[in-house]
Design a binder for these strands. Structure first.
Lengths: 169, 169
DNA sequence: TTGATATTGAAAATGAATTTCATTTTCCTT
DNA sequence: AAGGAAAATGAAATTCATTTTCAATATCAA
């Protein structure tokens, strides 16, 4: 893997976190640094549990609780955002005051794809207006089958069960 | 309160449930009848806990578990639908193969308002198309302040805390 | 270096959702 | 109507993600 703009991007975000920590009277720690780096390197929508597992491979001394608390901290600082989809697990996505976006969620493989749509933003305003409602934000989730899984589905047809939603093992 | 078309509407739904029970090899019971009636009389978005409390006033012998299981049964039969909003509680709404609809949720008082919007349905299709995604359904939730609470907010301005989100007591 | 304060991580607690199990009820079959 | 197999009930227990507690440890400003 070649180092590109990504490194500096991450460096920038880590600076952002440090500022946040200093302002809030929090302390910079080895754990927070490792967890933040690992989180930022895993673009996507990750659960605290998943991130913990990834980290604990290399750092057996870092506990789940610290990963959990650091993700909360990242959320407060604006570097992460919490998302809950229909499997009821809390996921964190890397977030840097980007524009609002929404999600496509595959019912088969669980893949989560982000999208932005200006018309959707406008529509929110219109709908709210009809109810004299003052909108602050919204959540739009489209559930269905992604390109890859759609093919599978067509072939396997009446195959047993859908593969996901294993909320409780 | 005057009895109107509502009674027969409810009667119809209860018939629907009976058919479902018979087909599935389930039994009709006093508890299921009471719970169903009470659920259908409480239009809105109610949690199992809330419904249980309402019912247990008059029927102290009906347990939470039965209310919970009956709501699941109503969901299977198509008479109810589960909804989870940002407080992560599972709510049930009366549902009878109505058209799809979405929700406005007040961040202050928690009021949940339903809306239907044809443009939103079309937009789902278009967005999904862009990603070769095959949409099955979607969830659109607009969070903000309802008319009543918006007024309050304007007056109380820097008042203490927002009133809701008491997820954990 | 020191001391006040924050952090850490293991374990415990929490709380909603779900399951277990002994008892009771339903309802099909005589 | 009685019998009996199968399902339902409800209290209590369990599950599981999330959150809190607390004693030990680390940070960092003075």
């Amino acid at each position: 893997m070649r180092k590109s703009g990504k490194s500096s991007e991450i460096a920038g975000k880590k600076e952002q976190l440090k500022s946040f920590l200093k302002e809030g009277g929090f302390k910079s720690t080895r754990q927070r640094d490792i967890i933040t780096t690992e989180f930022l390197n895993n673009k996507g929508h990750i659960t605290a549990e998943e991130l913990y597992r990834i980290i604990s491979r290399k750092h057996k001394d870092i506990g789940f609780t610290t990963v959990y608390r650091t993700l909360k901290l990242l959320t407060q600082s604006g570097l992460a955002a919490e998302r809950v989809f229909s499997d009821n697990l809390t996921r964190y996505e890397s977030f840097s005051s980007e524009e609002h976006h929404d999600h496509l969620i595959c019912l088969n493989c669980g893949a989560i794809t982000e999208f932005k749509n200006e018309k959707l933003e406008n529509l929110q305003e219109k709908i709210a207006d009809d109810f004299s409602f003052h909108p602050m934000t919204h959540k739009m989730e489209i559930y269905g089958y992604c390109m890859g899984c759609n093919k599978q589905t067509l072939n396997l047809k009446k195959a047993d069960e859908p593969q996901r939603s294993q909320r409780k093992t």
